[in-house]
Design a protein around this nucleic acid. Structure first.
Lengths: 349, 349
DNA sequence: GTTTTCTACGGAAACGATTCCGCAAGATGC
DNA sequence: GCATCTTGCGGAATCGTTTCCGTAGAAAAC
């Protein structure tokens, strides 16, 4: 039905091979012929069949993005960055959402071994605790670039942020605001970024001679209700934390809700800082102090690294680690009594 | 390199056609052979080449999702719904982000005519003011399902929400809260959903005998700074609006920021209601009254309709219009003085 | 004037799966 | 006992491109 290269060739009294080469500006074809072929291609609205082309060339001009969730500003922005680069390069983006589920992740990765895509960009699911599926993928020679939630044991190119430093900065920020019992809300002990952030947290406590209490470290899941319950139990303790460092936005949100229910006021009774890419953190009540990752840039860099492999056939010889910087943005949720007074004073004027 | 069907056939001393049929449970093949073939397929980790298969069958098991943006809870949730259904059906999802740009939209749609995907799910860009590209796509016989930002002139299957009713309800909600000069913040006059919402807005004004002032209707773009400027000009007028009905979340957010800058207090001096899928609307200061669309369900229904076409070869014979209901969730940003007093009273207890 | 070298193109074999035909046996019908 | 049907499978064409060869004719080399 659709016009193909054969039809073009017949129309022009040329061979199929000549038409194919003319369309790709091969040096073997005369200018005159190229012009004729291209004009006819436009006239007949010829569009090459991507499946035939992929089959023959053994490359699909498609990349896969495997992420834990999409209704999350961090990943949405990362997708934007990836999509931007992919568009520039004429590539198409397939999206796979694991919903933090390891089984799904394994299924996706296994399926992606069939040559459907030229490369895979991914961020690990929180449940993923072993990496056999990813090893298999790499063995098949499919380029793999991790971003944010990376797999360190596999090696290869990864794009991360300075999680240790951010964890340290967040914790120190709380300490300087007067907190002494700081809870660390973790998303998954399997994720290396969580470990890094926690190391920063521990280091900051140590530096300021604060005890590291394991009861103040809690691991959360994907279940919102369960998360709030864990948090509620923590905040109902006789001696509750006076600071919260949340390694994921949704944990901070849970914190807000639970504090509201328990009538614990932020930042007077408890201060909160969280990793987050929420644009409107400043409109929350109180505004949320965040560590904001350069999500768009992370996606962009991940895609750029991928195309470095794809274009140069540079088979992962130089597994790079790119570290981008996050920024701590102090807001109302970590305001100290002193600062709060200053703010009130300003308002009064 | 990868094991193909030929290799399987050789290994089993069978013909290629037999192996192919055995793998697809063809009735022509004996049970014994099927078992042998499948065992060998697993043993050799055979995975059919998707490009060869797509080429031959002339179908790709892929669908495209074309949306204006992804860093937006509505679209992110819709993608979730689409992806859920696609996974169930064994389909893959390609994503294309127009960034509200008509040129990009046209490019995408034109490219998608090459048979890369079996169907297209889309939500129009705000800039799109003519639909030739979409007509061409349909003429090629590629199923097209619109969701939310639909194209009414083309016909075909669409998934929408009850925008007129929602617009009416939102406006009436403001009126009942005491507003008399209600501004309508529009995203694009090209979008039919905007028109519907505005019709509801007008109807509500009419019902309550309020004048329809064109100066209170403003159209916004994708440019955040420009949007805030337009809004700021509107709120600096001698007689400024006392209510805002925002047809998109980002316009409400702009409203919050501008009110903050101009020291206009919400909801005392101005009340705001907005279309939004922001989960944490209730944590804003003040919490935001929203019209929330069933985004996930919209995506799901859109995908289900698509598969109805794809599976039954039901060539769009029955272009359905599915209307889902949005819900108005009253919160702080539209609290009347009366209610506010009641809330204060509750707090005092 | 003969040989070599380009230039510009055509023929045909891939790529890997699907499917239209065709055809041996063995089963069945009469 | 012969014709017919069924079962189970193989051969080869096909989808549309890309690309490896090959080659006619003109230009250049000697």
């Amino acid at each position: 039905m659709a016009v193909n290269i054969k039809r073009l060739a017949e129309e022009l009294n040329l061979s199929i091979s000549t038409v194919s080469r003319a369309l790709k500006d091969s040096f073997e074809i005369s200018e005159a012929t190229k012009v004729k072929v291209k004009e006819m291609a436009i006239k007949l609205d010829y569009q090459p069949n991507p499946h035939a082309s992929s089959l023959r060339r053994n490359s699909s001009k498609m990349i896969a993005v495997v992420i834990p969730e999409v209704a999350n500003n961090f990943f949405a922005l990362a997708i934007n960055g990836i999509e931007y680069v992919a568009q520039e390069k004429g590539y198409h983006v397939l999206i796979y959402i694991t919903h933090e589920n390891k089984t799904k992740e394994v299924e996706f990765i296994n399926h992606l071994q069939d040559g459907r895509v030229d490369g895979v960009l991914m961020s690990l699911s929180a449940e993923t605790d072993n990496f056999d599926h990813l090893v298999r993928l790499k063995e098949r020679g499919i380029p793999l670039v991790f971003f944010d939630r990376v797999c360190e044991s596999i090696g290869g190119t990864v794009i991360v942020t300075d999680d240790f430093e951010s964890g340290f900065a967040a914790t120190e920020h709380l300490i300087k605001a007067g907190c002494t019992r700081i809870a660390y809300l973790d998303l998954s002990r399997h994720l290396s970024i969580s470990s890094r952030r926690m190391e920063g947290y521990r280091k900051a406590l140590e530096k300021h001679n604060l005890p590291a209490d394991d009861d103040l470290i809690a691991e959360f899941t994907n279940d919102v209700a369960a998360n709030e319950e864990i948090l509620e139990n923590m905040l109902r303790r006789p001696v509750r934390p006076d600071g919260i460092f949340a390694s994921a936005e949704k944990l901070a949100v849970a914190g807000y809700y639970v504090c509201d229910r328990l009538n614990i006021s932020i930042p007077e009774q408890i201060k909160i800082v969280s990793f987050s890419n929420l644009e409107i953190s400043s409109l929350l009540h109180p505004s949320l102090t965040t560590i904001t990752q350069p999500a768009y840039e992370i996606g962009k860099q991940a895609a750029l690294q991928m195309f470095r492999f794809l274009e140069k056939r540079d088979r992962m010889k130089t597994p790079e680690t790119i570290v981008l910087k996050s920024t701590l943005i102090p807001r109302g949720s970590t305001r100290s009594a002193l600062e709060a007074a200053a703010v009130r004073k300003r308002f009064r004027k």
